[in-house]
Design a protein around this nucleic acid. Structure first.
Lengths: 191, 191, 191, 191
DNA sequence: CATGAATGAGTATTCATTCAT
DNA sequence: CATGAATGAATACTCATTCAT
């Protein structure tokens, strides 16, 4: 019960398999029967749960994006920008470490041609939330005054860059690295 | 006149068309005949110049990576880290603005399964060059002391993040934005 | 009823269609979709049963060669060479008449570049069997003393020549013709 | 002068190259540019001399068939059937040994779908010539009385069988083998 | 005449999707 | 519900043929 994420559920099995394969080989590089195989499910079964391969990526995208949002911005604490930044960074680290595949997947879908309107809308909503946080902090003079989109691009981009530099070495980044990275990026954006 | 870089050359036409389409739809999402259409060339013609679609991406990757390297690190000036960073950042901005497609393309190919040994070797060589620059500056105490891979991930990631935030708005970033971004990232990495 | 050899089976339908087309137009002259059409099967279906067109010819070759061997040499009777020759010739006639396409197909594949090691091995095994029969008869002084390969080339070649002379007239050879041909070739090889 | 068969002539170079390749890989298995390469001629040049690939095989077929006919039946000597058979067999051996490729080529084209009416007409004419020789000998009671087509199938088939048995061992048949084969086939057909 | 770059129709093969069981 | 065999449209690639040089 509770937050049951068991994989006896065929639908979940499909989504998990799809997540792994899309990360490894991309959307077009992954065949539906491959997803079925990995999910230990008949190929036809996938079409009981998703009307098409595109619908599958989109649902997957929305699910993971939502999980990411929930994990990172749920109940953002009040406090000064430094503390806020620390909390957000740490939560992103936790999410990215525990859900490496999910995080990579979300990164790869940036503006993919197969994402539908609903997915894009969700992305905009999430982006706005972050930008609002930035705007507030800027209004209080705690952050440098750049367009929120720019500031967010810097921070998120740097975060992804760190993840990637680790993936390349095939090694989870040490917590010391994460702390240093956090410090760097705080100095990057603080007023 | 002069030795213009006109595209009467079919080989170049194919590479240019491939560049645009790979950026828009990805490698697997792009059909060879589409490349031919966009290049205004017969489908078979592509195979006079490239033995396969994979060979085409690889040649494209190496060409663009080399152009990027030449534009950014050619004759790195001596001087203190701040000046060096300024020069590199500005050159990257110039390259990314003038060759937005090329830059996006290079970003997307990170560790793609279809890149061959030669392409990976080139990537490693370029990465090493950057990391050596970082190491020197760290040795002189001008930069924070993180693994070079981490520092480079931060800076390149942030740079890409800025580019992306612009692509999303479909608008070239104002030079003021670039200056601010540079300042941010300098503060991020300086000792 | 009984265990009829009906062609409801798609795999068999493909093999039968391929047999006819390969005989009529050759391996390279036959397109896979043509095989699919004649077999009344989707083009993709062929690839559920055979990994490639080459694998298809090879399986077909082995199947027909094995059927031929079983029909001709199964339980070779003991007795003098004349009787033995009579039996083998008659069995070959029966096989070639009832399976004209199969026989022509086997003839055409001689040393084809697309036959794989397994097919060649099978061919060698069958050839050896025939040559051994010839050697025994020669040892008993019942046949002329030429290399077994030569003797077999003569007899099999003549047999094929007869079949061909019929195919050209598009008419099954009369049994009288077969008897005469048998007599001719017996006189050709007898000591 | 005289029977100049020099290969400075591009047309001949093409025919020679085509002959070799058609024997090795078959008609459909041979690409026109390959023929051009082997003939050391531009691909387009082939089309100055032959309107199409099919026209090329047909001209080649007719040329070689005619050469074969000239070499074997030119000035058939009078005399008894045994002597006649000896002469024809020896001439066929000479032709097949000196022009192995040509002989194999002619064999392979039997009823090929791409042979045109003219080629078939030539084949029929040549076949008739041989059959007439057979009929005469049968009329004189020197040969067994089977349909001429049958008798010719036997002899020509056996001849090809011998050639093939050698090709398989990759060794020209010894003249002793040819003599034995001749003796065998004479006994096969004599009255 | 000779060339070979260019073409596009044609080939083998894959894969998203359907549907009978 | 679940399956996986079957499908055919789509893909990467080849090759006979043309034509500008």
């Amino acid at each position: 019960m509770a937050t049951a994420t068991k994989t006896t559920n065929k639908r979940d099995a499909v989504m998990n398999a799809a997540l792994e394969l899309f990360v490894e080989r991309g959307f077009y590089g992954t065949a539906v029967p491959e997803i079925a195989d990995k999910a230990e499910v008949g190929a036809g079964t996938i079409y009981r749960y998703f009307p098409s391969k595109e619908a599958l990526v989109n649902e997957l995208y929305r699910q993971e994006k939502t999980r990411f949002g929930a994990a990172v911005v749920a109940g953002i604490p009040v406090g000064n920008a430094r503390e806020l930044f620390h909390t957000l960074w740490r939560r992103m680290v936790d999410f990215a470490v525990e859900n490496q595949k999910s995080f990579m997947f979300l990164e790869l879908q940036h503006h993919a041609a197969y994402l539908d309107a609903e997915s894009h809308a969700l992305e905009h909503r999430m982006t706005s939330m972050f930008e609002n946080v930035i705007k507030s902090a800027q209004a209080r003079g705690e952050l440098k005054a750049g367009t929120p989109a720019l500031m967010m691009g810097l921070v998120m981009g740097a975060f992804v860059g760190v993840i990637r530099s680790c993936v390349e070495i095939d090694l989870a980044p040490a917590s010391a690295d994460w702390k240093l990275a956090e410090q760097c990026m705080w100095e990057a954006i603080r007023a």
